[in-house]
């Protein structure tokens, strides 16, 4: 009979669902509908795999990371499972380079001490010290880049970003976590159109996702809108223009929200411009990263414009 390991203990579930089995033993797992729709009891398998039925209705990015619903899980093999927030191990990394991408954003390349499994667009936690960590998104693509690539924006009097700006240099050893997050490209549906909207360093995950999609031979339109107050806020511009030259299905639109209209930039709020260009988003996949007000408004507006909730991926920060 398959066993289920959770929190260092083994359980035999018999005819019960994993959720019923754990809760019957007094293990506190948050739950609500207990029948596979509300997703409150979400867990992740870190060893072994669960039957497909236990992943029904989950977002593709969650399913791809072995998330499942224990209420609908009747395991057929031994599994080890964790709650979503657990299971992010720590590793050491060496800083390979630090460079200014613009006045407020640093590009940081890290060389992890052991291979890190991740998807472009996920994030790692960066530890300033054992008790102080912040999340930074991965702009690198595992198959294309040797190093992890972060874009860190300077937050006024920010504890960790401020420390990074004043202290971090090539050669330093730092502690980071394993990667997590569900804002990334899942192969399949290569013809689906993709809309990406970001502000500031919200470009970091999007830059990774775009290159990952292109690497996977995505054929649908891939439209990136990067918003900034003024033209000084743009970065990775040459790289993005180059991608545009090589891939006819990729379009890069930098948008400035303040000041006079200028050549090469769309003028206005990034979300308004993206929606005006693409009023019908039925069937599209959407990625939204950066300023929380923009991201939250964009979730609602892209949903109203026809995108399915399951196709909207967002990291507000």
């Amino acid at each position: 009979m398959p066993t289920v390991v959770y929190g260092g203990q083994s359980y035999e579930c018999g005819e019960q669902s994993v959720l019923d089995c754990l809760t019957a033993q007094g293990v506190p797992i948050p739950s609500s509908c207990r029948s596979g729709s509300c997703q409150t009891c979400l867990m992740r398998a870190i060893k072994g795999s669960v039957p497909e039925k236990a992943k029904a209705g989950l977002k593709p990015t969650l399913a791809a990371q072995n998330y499942f619903l224990p209420c609908s899980c009747y395991p057929e093999e031994n599994i080890e499972i964790v709650l979503p927030a657990e299971g992010m191990g720590k590793i050491e990394a060496t800083v390979a380079s630090v460079e200014y991408l613009n006045a407020d954003i640093l590009g940081i390349k890290l060389h992890p001490s052991k291979p890190l499994t991740y998807k472009a667009g996920q994030f790692i936690n960066f530890f300033r010290d054992a008790a102080t960590a912040r999340s930074y998104s991965l702009a690198s693509v595992p198959a294309l880049d040797h190093e992890l690539y972060l874009n860190v924006r300077k937050v006024p009097s920010g504890l960790v970003s401020g420390w990074i700006f004043s202290n971090l240099k090539a050669g330093d050893t730092v502690t980071i976590s394993e990667a997590a997050g569900d804002c990334f490209y899942v192969p399949g549906k290569p013809g689906q159109n993709i809309l990406l909207i970001g502000t500031g360093s919200g470009l970091a995950p999007l830059y990774g996702i775009i290159r990952d999609a292109l690497l996977n031979g995505h054929t649908g339109q891939i439209s990136l809108y990067h918003g900034s107050y003024n033209a000084d806020g743009f970065y990775l511009v040459k790289e993005l223009q180059k991608l545009e030259q090589y891939h006819s299905n990729f379009r890069y639109t930098p948008c400035v929200s303040e000041g006079e209209a200028q050549k090469d930039y769309a003028q206005g709020m990034v979300l308004d411009i993206a929606l005006a260009d693409n009023p019908d988003l039925s069937g599209w996949r959407i990625f939204l990263c950066g300023n929380p007000d923009m991201v939250n408004a964009a979730k609602r507006e892209t949903f109203f414009a026809g995108a399915s909730m399951n196709d909207i991926y967002a990291d507000p920060f």
């Binding site: 609500s32 029948s35 596979g36 729709s37 997703q39």
Partner: peptide, 17 residues
């Protein structure tokens, strides 16, 4: 949205607890 799904499953007479 997942909670809406729970609501609809219930209204459709589907499995729920």
């Amino acid at each position: 949205a997942s909670k809406q799904k729970a609501f609809l499953t219930m209204a459709f007479g589907g499995p729920h607890n």
